[in-house]
Design a binder for these strands. Structure first.
Lengths: 212, 212
DNA sequence: CAAAAATATCACCGGGCGGTGACTTTTTCT
DNA sequence: AGAAAAAGTCACCGCCCGGTGATATTTTTG
């Protein structure tokens, strides 16, 4: 990279031994790792700095403290989330509530299953809401809600169906199952370890939403 | 009370200024309060002793530390839970899956809604499992599972219904909604503050399980 | 090259935590 | 009554936390 710059003849950019953006990224990565592993328990100035291999002072300088760092991570997560949501939102005009909500439910399920950080943020905001959890969850929740209403706007609701309540139930179940699976490997006596287990869940979910 | 004892002529039981069991109960109550309010965040030796108005040493002496205290509280909670579960388990032989699971779902929903401690224990075990959370959740989970299988044994399952998966979904949803309601007052855009809100949830839940 | 600014590190503070030993006061036993 | 045991209090320890000022090192600028 630097070779390119000098070759072009720009103001030389010597391979800096001190690179702020790289450092900042290291810190962000360390914080994300900790968050995935231990949640907000280990999400502290000392712990993050230790894992990033730098002094905690840098976190204050680069991000103006933990809250700033949380904001950065929150928006990063939200961006990744937005991208993922797009991938399973475009189906043709749904014909029924089941048609509409089934891919939504399955998509969310897999999204939550595969994203440990979102699991931790969700779980911690339920167990121990704080400034930090709220900062992180805010951007994410905003995008998810926007996405949902955008989907909802596309279809007409059947008469007599309380779509808001039904969705809250479905989404709640999906979140709970995903979180419980990584925490215990099971939920309410149902093992949630193998792919076969999850296929059962998917089938049951489909059954629920289609028969509604 | 003491008057009665002396009147009868028993070995006099002077109104003790130091009463171990009363003290112990004070400590347990204090711990439960803290648990309801702050979860396992504030569930520490110092904090509990402060709230109970006594020295933390007593917690070590009476309960052999935090873990012992957690065990006592866990079994207390489990006992209360067992009693409550009995109250809505006895319906006549159910004729369908919906018949069987509807009162179960609604009962669990109201039980979780009204029991802050169980909410906190559940939420914390998902967010930050530890020795303490596990100790507390163990007795409770054991009784709940026993109760569920006892119910399950009473009915024959319709063919093609994955009862285990369906139940896991329903129970997960119920738990998540209750916890989310006390934490935010809403879930997935659905307000969960007023009784009317919860009636919507109950109706939607009934709709789900009946149509399954 | 030297001065200035950015970058990074270190040492230290107060405070809360869990945990423990030594102590005083009360109750019970003989 | 006096001794032993139980109940309760106090002071202290080491540890890790978040936070901050002073300092060392590197990079950029003039």
């Amino acid at each position: 990279m630097e070779d390119l710059a000098t070759a072009i003849g720009q103001t030389e950019v010597p391979a800096r031994r001190r690179d702020r953006v790289a450092r900042a990224q290291t810190i962000i990565s360390a914080a994300k790792e900790i968050l995935s592993e231990s949640g907000f328990d280990g999400f502290g100035i000392n712990s993050i700095a230790r894992r990033a291999g730098c002094d905690k002072q840098l976190i204050y300088r680069y991000f103006e403290g933990l809250e700033g760092l949380a904001e950065v991570i929150g928006t990063e997560i939200a961006d990744e989330l937005s991208a993922e949501l797009e991938t399973f939102s475009r189906k043709e005009a749904p014909k029924s509530y089941g048609d509409w909500v089934e891919p939504l439910a399955i998509g969310l399920l897999n999204l939550f299953r595969s994203n440990l950080i979102i699991q931790k943020i969700t779980a911690w905001e339920l167990a121990s809401p704080s400034r930090l959890t709220r900062i992180m969850a805010e951007a994410r929740a905003k995008r998810m809600n926007a996405w949902m209403v955008s989907l909802r706007g596309e279809m007409k609701h059947p008469e007599g169906l309380d779509v808001g309540a039904l969705n809250a139930i479905i989404i709640g179940a999906v979140q709970h199952l995903a979180i419980s699976a990584t925490a215990f490997g099971s939920q309410a006596g149902l093992s949630l370890a193998t792919d076969a287990d999850w296929l059962r869940v998917e089938a049951a979910l489909r059954h629920f939403v289609r028969s509604a």
